[in-house]
Amino acid sequence: MKAPPFGYRRVSSAAEAADALRELGSDARILAGGQSLLPMLSVRIASPSHLVDIGRADDLRHITADNGSLRIGAAATQWSVENDQATTAAAPLLADAISRAGQVPIRHRGTVVGSIAHADPSAEIPAAVLASGATLIAASTGSEREISADDFFQGPYMTALEEGELLREVRIDRWPDGTGHAFEEFSHSHESWPVVTAAVLVLLNGGTIDRVAIAMSGVDGRPVRAGQAEHELTGQAPTPELLAEAAQSATRDLEPFSDVFGSGRYRKRVATALVRRALTTATTRAGGGA
């Protein structure tokens, strides 16, 4: 299981990376931490012509919180983000999700943005990013555009990124103080691939749900938001019955894929349970009594 041959270029900035992608063409791939890409090379299901290594690009390693937004650069490792005080304060849901994403030695190398760009339909970080209503910043030579998380994930390992674009940054707007969060995951062993995850944010106001976000992974070709359930919850008092109904609602229309980790039927059942638990935990953390 050795990687096929490829060319390698290390860049020192986002601009250099974008230029390299333009120059090297469509078979070049970005290498950040490599924790998703290198296993694919090892089994030769990917064969890029070149890898453009952004790991040392100083303008891509940032983790900053300002004006209520958390910004994470494409080269910031998962470990540095989950242990960053700005992150745990501004986006605790993301921090929780990262802490479940692969073993510690993987998170030492793997990047948050790399996991988003990889778009594994079962992965933790995309679910948290989607629930958080994050914005993805795509850069190409001389231009940049913003893509909402809702639009970014398009299918298994497919995103809205276009040829020549580098996913430069993820920006997460901070939810108000008092927001409750919860991240739930089912995997077979403690460290094996995630099967289903649920990411929830809840903000209460005077005993009723003011704002709520629910996202799941492992139930579709891409991470999904549960818009209908969010709608049903908003403005309501979070009783256990209501949360259980919302969890049912969150998964009612899903037709998850089946694979060796779980059938579609099973994924749906587990997702319902995880959403209910995540809603319960998040509501409790938000000061509610559910």
Binding site: M1, K2, Y8, R10, L31, G34, Q35, L38, P39, S42, V43, L51, D53, G55, W79, G102, Q103, V104, P105, I106, H108, R109
Partner: peptide
Amino acid sequence: CEQGACGACTVLVDGQSVRACLMLTVQ
């Protein structure tokens, strides 16, 4: 396993544990 699952290749790089099978020498 050469895919980062087993951890037999774990070494410390700049003090942090990494999978040596999932890191290129050039990195």
